[in-house]
């Protein structure tokens, strides 16, 4: 596969709030027995229509908190989140969420799972099953529509969750490490599937991840976060050609981006590790 000449890694400027999703100056604190912890500290970014943005950071940087804030599952924070100009202050139809944990409904078949948001929306049965089949085909699960999740592999189940969220036709697809529990090969192949879907639907996507390869493979931009408190450290533009596939991981340009993001992340991950170790020592 041919790739563009190796670009020089550069930090992209944090865009002004002109995207379809605008996260503006978010601060989230949690009370703990040891005092108040600031999980997310003055984080701002915007996602342009059709863009794929990844948020990457070490464990404890507030990625999942950010995911829950944007999805409307966490309230009581400073700052604002707007989708297409509309402020989010709870779960919102414009934002579709795919969770890290396995989240299919085990008592429903694949097609019933995917049709779930359409059923909630009151769509007639024939119509919703037809539409669900479209999204099942999109994630490559044709032939499995009448199976139950227990009969599927972990990767297939995550694709069911993805199809279910896509069936609700959200303006923003929000994913929290959806392939974290899968092996590396499956993760790369599912990355291909996500790229295909992204290409087909022009779906604006925000991916929360700690996997650098995954972030570089899929993203137009990567927002690197600092270890606690979670702040924006840098935004890296990924200038790799589209359409992409997992073959791109062998290219020099890909390796260069991975090295660049790791250079930013390493310092934060080391800090996180050091703090975890010192906490463990204190407990002793």
């Amino acid at each position: 596969m041919s790739v563009a000449p190796m670009p020089s890694p550069r930090a992209a400027p944090i865009p002004k709030p002109d995207g379809i999703l605008v996260v503006d100056d978010i601060v989230k604190r949690f009370p703990t027995p040891d005092g108040v912890i600031t999980a997310v500290d003055h984080v701002s970014f915007a996602v342009r229509p059709g863009e794929f943005l990844s948020v990457i950071g070490p464990s404890g940087c507030g990625k999942s908190t950010l995911f829950n804030i944007i999805g409307g599952l966490v309230t009581g924070f400073d700052g604002s989140v707007t989708v297409a100009g509309e402020r989010i202050d709870g779960p919102h139809a414009s934002v579709g969420m795919v969770f890290q944990e396995e989240s299919t409904f085990p008592w429903r078949t694949v097609i019933e799972n995917v049709a779930f948001p359409l059923e909630i929306a009151g769509m007639p049965k024939t119509q919703r099953l037809e539409k669900a089949m479209h999204f099942i085909a999109l994630v490559g699960l044709n032939g499995f529509e009448n199976r139950h999740p227990v009969e599927l592999s972990g990767g297939m189940r995550q694709r069911v969750s993805l199809a279910r969220t896509l069936a609700s036709e959200p303006k923003i697809l929000l994913m929290d490490e959806p392939f974290a529990a899968l092996d590396e090969q499956t993760r790369l192949l599912l990355g291909d599937k996500v790229l295909q879907i992204q290409q087909t639907l022009k779906q604006t996507t925000l991916l929360i991840t700690h996997n650098i390869t995954e972030a570089v493979q899929l993203s137009d931009r990567i927002l690197v976060m600092t270890y606690r408190p979670g702040r924006t450290k840098r935004v890296v533009e990924i200038d790799l050609p589209r359409p992409r596939s997992s073959e791109i991981v062998g290219s020099d340009a890909f390796g260069h981006y991975v090295a660049q993001v790791w250079a930013d992340l390493r310092e934060e991950a080391t800090r996180g590790l050091d703090e975890a170790e010192s906490r463990a020592r204190e407990k002793k």
Binding site: G71, L73, M97, E102, F105, P117, I120
Partner: peptide, 27 residues
């Protein structure tokens, strides 16, 4: 009932009755 399933319900804006009938009870 697994928290993630409740969060799926919340993300789809289920009413309390829908949450009970569609997620909590079958689970």
């Amino acid at each position: 009932t697994r928290r993630v399933l409740l969060n799926v319900g919340r993300s789809f804006k289920l009413t309390p009755l829908q949450m009970f009938l569609k997620i909590q009870l079958p689970s």
